[in-house]
């Protein structure tokens, strides 16, 4: 027996998907923004710190990188409130989790970028009398950004896709919207085709925007 594609039911509930996509983007932007702060601070700290601090930061990175995101999401949303007296929404919980998660990946990206800044440029910064802080702001970070931007773009795209994991704790983002439509209309092929296309187009749009930023950064005066 044949299965006839019928997208009508999908379009009827398209607001679920559109709203879901906007929420996915919002989750990604907030989490990544916090993750960038975590990643930058820890990476700068790491390259100038002693062994103990390095070990602690490395442990955080290794922990996050070796535990599946979905497990972290469960741990923070279901596990943590049973141990400590905290109440937070699923959305807040997910943003916190993805921020910690992206932070760990971004520490690695930024750290390798910082270490790739040629020593000669730091010498030049010292030689004209810049203080360590000025060298960081005016020499090290700008050079690091040029080195890391391509890797950073890839990490961002990957983190955007990771927002789909929020569906497991009922955050109404794009994947959750797809599940809802599936459960209510049984148009499983149609809804996942549409949602796949939405992830794809958004991912490409993000990538394109980030490439523009890269190009602008390379030629900025």
């Amino acid at each position: 027996m044949g299965y006839t594609l019928n997208f009508n039911l999908i379009w009827r509930h398209f607001d679920k998907l559109w709203g879901g996509l906007l929420l996915s983007l919002e989750l990604a932007v907030i989490s990544i923004a916090i993750g960038i702060v975590i990643g930058l601070v820890l990476a700068v700290w790491y390259v100038s710190a002693g062994r103990v601090v390095r070990a602690i930061i490395a442990a955080y990175v290794e922990f996050i990188r070796n535990v599946p995101l979905i497990l972290l999401v469960y741990l923070v949303f279901y596990g943590l409130p049973t141990v400590v007296d905290l109440a937070y929404s699923a959305q807040t919980s997910f943003v916190a989790t993805l921020a910690l998660y992206s932070g760990a990946y971004l520490v690695e990206v930024f750290r390798s970028g910082l270490e790739a800044v040629p020593r000669g440029q730091l010498d030049a910064g010292k030689a004209i009398g810049l203080t360590p802080w000025q060298r960081l702001i005016h020499v090290r970070l700008p050079t690091m950004m040029r080195i890391t931007l391509p890797a950073l773009s890839n990490t961002f795209i990957s983190l955007f896709k990771d927002t789909s994991v929020a569906s497991v704790i009922s955050v109404p983002e794009l994947t959750y919207g797809a599940q809802w439509i599936n459960f209510n209309t049984f148009r499983i092929v149609e809804v996942y085709l549409v949602v796949t296309a939405m992830y794809l187009v958004t991912g490409y749009a993000l990538l394109f925007a980030l490439r523009l930023v890269e190009r602008w950064y390379r030629t900025a005066r």
Binding site: P118, G120, Q121, D123, A124, G125, A127, H138, V139, P142, T143, R146
Partner: peptide, 8 residues
Amino acid sequence: FQGFNLFP
């Protein structure tokens, strides 16, 4: 410097 070391 030998390698110029300009800020790129």
